[in-house]
Simulated scan of single mutants.
Amino acid sequence: MTAYLVALRAIVAREMLRFVHQRGRFVSALVRPLVWLLVFAAGFRAALGLSIIPPYQTYITYETYIVPGLCGMIMLFNGMQSSLSLVYDREMGSMRLLLTSPLPRWWLLVCRLIGATAISVAQVYAFLAIAALFGIRVPPVGYVAVLPALVVAGLMLSALGLALSSLIRQLENFAGVMNFVIFPMFFLSSALYPLWKMAESSRLLHDISVINPFTHAVELIRFALHASWNGAALLWVLLSLVAFMALALWGYDPGRGMMWRKG
């Protein structure tokens, strides 16, 4: 057990130190959602009408509505960036060396997952603090209640990135795959507009959004920010986490995974 904890501490500390030394990554992680919050929301506010939907008890501003979606955006992009660094480590040899340690492969991947999630949660709280400075606040208890939701959502999105990194052999190919995954997941969700609004324009897009794991991650965060329970969203996120993690473990298995295949 001591060896497991030492590995966890070392891998998480390495991820945190890497993040601290990459100040541009922290700034870009905040600039992206702040642009949506302060610029795009100004135009969407007039074009998009909102009704009273759970967990809200009254009409809200559009900026308030998209805050959970922007929190999800931060975690989604960070999960992809963490997996990008994993592909880089694999090509440079450090990840290959790590995976040859006597500890189980699944534990090393879980440690990497926990490190990426910890960074995502820190970025989200920094974003919420900046949003509060602009007058976009949530109930005080929401800042505490949202922590478990952020952890679960962050693990799921980081596991998605981990699974993708196990299927990609070259660093050059990962950027295209990231765009192919990130933007459909983000726009086909409830991050920017409620699903009932999407159903008015396209039933097909609505149905795709309903099964999108990112939609349920956003809704889990949305309800938690208002200290409300959303069991269906939690169940869907947990099932997605298990599926993505299983795919990642399969991908990093030298006996079966694509990562180690030649030819």
Score class of each variant (00 low, 15 high):
residue 124 V to G: 08
residue 172 E to F: 03
residue 166 S to N: 06
residue 248 A to H: 15
residue 15 E to S: 12
residue 117 T to M: 04
residue 54 P to R: 00
residue 157 L to D: 09
residue 252 Y to C: 08
residue 159 A to V: 03
residue 245 M to E: 13
residue 254 P to W: 01
residue 8 L to F: 09
residue 208 I to C: 04
residue 91 E to M: 15
residue 238 L to H: 10
residue 22 Q to W: 12
residue 12 V to M: 06
residue 237 V to R: 00
residue 256 R to Y: 15
residue 67 V to F: 07
residue 163 A to F: 08
residue 67 V to D: 08
residue 51 S to L: 00
residue 29 A to M: 12
residue 18 R to M: 13
residue 201 S to M: 09
residue 120 S to Y: 00
residue 58 T to N: 04
residue 13 A to S: 05
residue 258 M to S: 15
residue 7 A to V: 02
residue 10 A to W: 15
residue 254 P to M: 02
residue 30 L to F: 01
residue 213 P to Y: 02
residue 13 A to Y: 01
residue 106 W to H: 13
residue 123 Q to P: 02
residue 136 I to M: 10
residue 37 L to H: 13
residue 189 S to F: 01
residue 211 I to K: 07
residue 42 A to M: 15
residue 231 G to C: 04
residue 58 T to E: 05
residue 104 P to R: 04
residue 18 R to C: 09
residue 234 L to C: 06
residue 122 A to L: 15
residue 34 L to A: 14
residue 11 I to W: 04
residue 83 S to Y: 01
residue 160 L to S: 10
residue 88 Y to V: 14
residue 111 C to I: 00
residue 203 R to I: 10
residue 217 A to V: 03
residue 153 A to W: 08
residue 159 A to M: 09
residue 261 R to D: 15
residue 1 M to Q: 01
residue 17 L to K: 15
residue 176 G to E: 05
residue 86 L to E: 02
residue 157 L to H: 05
residue 192 L to A: 00
residue 128 L to I: 00
residue 33 P to W: 02
residue 152 V to S: 09
residue 140 P to A: 11
residue 6 V to S: 12
residue 41 A to M: 10
residue 158 S to N: 00
residue 191 A to F: 03
residue 19 F to I: 08
residue 13 A to N: 03
residue 19 F to K: 06
residue 187 F to Q: 05
residue 200 E to G: 06
residue 148 P to A: 05
residue 94 S to I: 09
residue 166 S to G: 15
residue 120 S to H: 01
residue 28 S to C: 11
residue 199 A to F: 04
residue 136 I to S: 05
residue 188 L to P: 02
residue 2 T to K: 02
residue 224 A to S: 15
residue 165 S to M: 12
residue 178 M to Q: 09
residue 172 E to G: 03
residue 38 L to T: 11
